[in-house]
Design a protein around this nucleic acid. Structure first.
Lengths: 66, 66
DNA sequence: TCTATATGTAAAGTATTCTTTACTTTTGAT
DNA sequence: ATCAAAAGTAAAGAATACTTTACATATAGA
């Protein structure tokens, strides 16, 4: 899975720390997520999507390997 | 978080085992998911949504406590 | 009623998410 | 060039997702 987090943050002019705070995870979790170090939970995905006002599918993308 | 899995399965006339197979998890995972025993990963949510042809938000729902 | 299929549940184990602390590197502004 | 903010990374630990095996219960049709 990949994601658009970095772009969305840029659009909304937010730092990783900002986003982390809003969503309720650590900054490192956001960083790792952006770097595709792990797959976040559906709750996190829904929160991010809600925050950025976009469907989950516009932010998180399945890959062949998933 | 809650979800619509049971309804979607009914619409598509699928058993828990069918769904599990299609998505690539164990039947018990589907059962537990339906019973809100845990929060699935975003990959699972995306796969389910794709299978049922609906946005993730139409199948998985945030709650106050999330 | 008998039988097959579907669902529910439990427990132990493995894998992965996410946290905390802490340090390094990058980037951008002055 | 310097400094501060932002981003990257690492490692150890806690919490939780997910598997496997196994058995119990429910549901529906012959």
């Amino acid at each position: 899975m990949t994601n658009n987090l970095k772009v969305e943050r840029a659009i909304h002019n937010m730092t990783q720390a900002d986003l982390a705070l809003k969503i309720g995870v650590s900054r490192q979790s956001i960083n790792a997520m952006e770097k595709n170090k792990y797959v976040p939970s559906t709750v996190l995905a829904l929160k991010v999507a809600k925050l950025f006002n976009k469907p989950v599918e516009d932010i998180f993308f399945l890959e062949e390997t998933d």
